[in-house]
Amino acid sequence: MWPLQLLGRNTLALISGLGRAVIVLLSALLHKPNPRKGIPLLLQQLYSVGVMSLIIIIVSGGFIGMVLALQGYTILVGYGAEASLGPMVALSLLRELGPVVSALLFAGRAGSALTAEIGLMKATEQLSSLEMMAVDPLRRVIAPRFWAGFISLPLLAAIFSMVGILGAHLVGVDWLGVDAGTFWSVMQDQVDFNKDILNGIIKSVVFAFVVTWIAIYKGYDCEPTSEGISRATTSTVVQSSLLVLALDFILTALMFAR
């Protein structure tokens, strides 16, 4: 009876949480957009969500590209196949590391900040106060943040991959002596726009949707106390990271498996 009851309770909580999340998202997004007010709000959020994540994305992208080149080179050179360094790095970044790692970093940097900010606005009654001023907080506060996250992450993922490839070029070509022409041409030979770049972009769009959704929902739904906010922030990072990894597997299976 006891474990069964626990299972039932958790299932019900999960379903009702999911329902609330859907309602939050739909009521934030389904309305006539108002460009005069909406665009400045969106810009502001693009700044705090996207621009503020730029540094961490560029630095990590560069390092990951450099490490990939270093590791890949030592393995490939054993087969005399260091010419394949370019495609190896590019394919790893475009298909997997770019979308996934930038989504994880985004969840840690921007997702947690979104949750904490919205949670704090809730705890300090700012959301309530908007509502009493006849301004819908879902449209005014939640919607621009969602769109900003949704737009930012694919761009960040592209920047991540690009910087990663440049980092790999730095290590592979400038330090380890792989021929620059070989590096680029073999890469161009092996990387396909539809299969690799487009699929990577699709992945990062899906991740952007999921991570931002979790972040805004957790903030909006959190218990309005300091413990509540900190719990919500943690669970934003944990849940969105796990979901990104799980979804990555599913998407990869759909895209690349025969």
């Binding site: 009654e125 700012q126 106060s129 509502e131 006849a134």
Partner: peptide
């Protein structure tokens, strides 16, 4: 709601 307003305990600025 445009006809009413509320002063929150925390100020809610």
């Amino acid at each position: 709601r445009k006809r009413m307003s509320m002063l929150f305990q925390s100020g809610a600025l």
